[in-house]
């Protein structure tokens, strides 16, 4: 089994479907065994796995990022911390009553997890604005010109596209402001 560890990172950074599928095929079951052995279920495992890959994406974008361990070890560390955090939250909400959390957590992984939790507020809002708005906003954030966006979206005029963009952005920001996590955002 020879895996070029950097291939996994490249797949994550480029969002490459085939490469991502390979990561799932290679590692999801192993992470799931860990999560289920620690009180979670298969769905928890999938959630944690997905969140962990996004954190890998964020970390890999850092200018000084190098993979200092095996990819799996790196991924496993993130999953372990994510699951530890989730258990902690369940406990504080009274779902599980147990002793103090003793998961060891690496500080920089924790920092990445927290940052990603904040980012999630924006993506959750994005997920709620409807496909048409998503497409338009995505083009807008890609810094495409308004006339280009108008053509791609099949709008009759640039003015109409501007109006739509405003409406979509307003929806997006409304969802963010309504999110209970909004007040905790470090703005």
């Amino acid at each position: 089994m020879t895996i070029n560890q950097d291939e996994h990172i490249s797949a994550i950074l480029s969002g490459d479907m085939k490469g991502l599928q390979r990561i799932y095929d290679l590692y999801l079951n192993r992470i799931a065994r860990f999560i289920t052995s620690k009180g979670g279920n298969s769905e928890d495992a999938k959630d944690i796995f997905q969140d962990a890959l996004i954190i890998v994406f964020e970390k890999a974008q850092g200018p000084n990022f190098t993979l200092s361990s095996q990819f799996y070890t790196f991924l496993y560390g993130i999953c372990r911390n994510l699951w530890g955090n989730r258990l902690k939250k369940k406990r504080t909400s009274g779902v599980i009553n147990s002793d103090d959390e003793t998961y060891t957590s690496e500080e920089d992984i924790q920092a990445s997890i927290e940052a990603e939790e904040e980012n999630q507020v924006f993506w959750d809002a994005f997920d709620r604005i409807g496909e048409d708005c998503q497409k338009l906003m995505h083009l807008f954030f890609e810094k495409r010109r308004m006339d280009e966006i108008s053509t791609i979206m099949g709008h009759g005029s640039v003015n109409y596209t501007k109006k739509r963009k405003y409406k979509c952005k307003e929806k997006l920001l409304d969802w963010i402001r309504q999110d209970i996590r909004y007040t905790e955002l470090k703005l």
Binding site: I12, S14, G15, L20, K46, Q61, F141, K143
Partner: peptide, 25 residues
């Protein structure tokens, strides 16, 4: 956040893969 290159693509693809993935412990 929303203009990070490929992050939307990554999230979309992860959702697709995750939905069709079955776990075999």
């Amino acid at each position: 956040e929303l203009s990070k290159p490929n992050k939307k693509l990554l999230r979309d693809n992860l959702k697709i893969i995750s939905a069709r993935q079955t776990i075999n412990l």
